[in-house]
Design a protein around this nucleic acid. Structure first.
Lengths: 182, 182
DNA sequence: GTCTATAAGGTGATAGAC
DNA sequence: GTCTATCACCTTATAGAC
């Protein structure tokens, strides 16, 4: 096994286990075992479990699809994307793993930056009216709240409701911030 | 030291440490040390660290103050309460500790029920129009998203903005779900 | 680069004596 | 109720063979 493929095998096993079981439940040993290498190699390649997590987990480009298109209906598109069985699935498990690992300041900073880069910053550039930057971050907070409800707390009222209903109600609330209604 | 006062001393030390440092960073041994007892006693009294957390941490009555009063302006009152330096402080640290500990199914269920009992259920009883129960839970999701932004991710744009601005913008978005605008 | 072996220090939890 | 001793496990890290 060459160097890069060993590193890739570790990263792949880590990504899978972090998404499936979260940060705390995933051990360096179990990642090494799945990758077919020794635990010491994981440390050698990534330095620490924390760094392995940060370099492995990512949400890049998650919202591109919803951000494309007109400002009208953007709120509903964002909500629908998050709820979509197929498109939102990896993002939901990834977000859950990251939030639960925010005990670590590095993970917290990484998640904050990821949400900014993939959602708040591109959105802020599109918003008109006062406090565009703040409003974009508050939209990100709303999206985070929805992710929390469906992926972390698994609220049965929300997950059990028709996605179209959730998209209509929550989408309208998101749209209020997009439009700048206050 | 008698039985009940020992239990109370353990609970008090646990509550303080869980709020200050979160679930993972708090050890049964450190709680026992602060309470002036042996670590085994903590297990004897509470059964597990998980159970100690659940029985110790609580958010009861956190939103009563905002839920009182007219439906008009309720969104803004909720947001202001969460952001208030004094009134929202314990709730923010408690919520943060709980969210980060939702790896545990017991903690997850406890937090879900706490948010329902203190916010979603009393709110649902007041809402008029269709999907009242769902809308109340989505309001809870929005509040959770704001808590996440200020207490977990510590978004500098949100925490650095004037509380009145955040209350106006985010409050209006919450109010959209309270009023049933869709 | 790769791997084996091992160490230090911490964790939750349990058994059993007093 | 209280405490001592102990278990099995974890992460981080290092030394050294190949």
């Amino acid at each position: 096994m060459t160097g890069t493929s060993t590193r890739a095998a570790i990263a792949e096993a880590a990504r899978r286990q972090f998404q499936a079981g979260g940060y705390a439940a995933t051990s360096v040993r179990s990642v090494a075992a799945e990758a077919g290498v020794d635990a010491a190699l994981v440390m050698r390649h990534f330095g620490s479990k924390e760094q392995l997590f940060i370099e492995t987990i990512d949400v890049e480009g998650a919202f591109e699809q919803a951000l494309d298109g007109p400002a009208d209906g953007l709120g509903e598109r964002l909500v629908s994307l998050v709820l979509d069985d197929r498109l939102g699935r990896v993002f939901r498990t990834t977000y859950r793993a990251m939030i639960r690992a925010t005990d670590s300041d590095q993970v917290r900073a990484h998640l904050l930056e990821a949400m900014d880069a993939t959602l708040a910053a591109p959105l802020a550039a599109r918003l008109t009216g006062p406090d565009a930057r703040l409003r974009a971050r508050l939209v990100a907070a709303q999206v985070g709240g929805l992710l929390e409800a469906v992926a972390i707390l698994e609220d049965p009222v929300v997950t059990g409701a028709p996605a179209a209903d959730v998209a209509r109600w929550y989408g309208a609330a998101v749209q209020a911030l997009v439009d700048g209604d206050a």
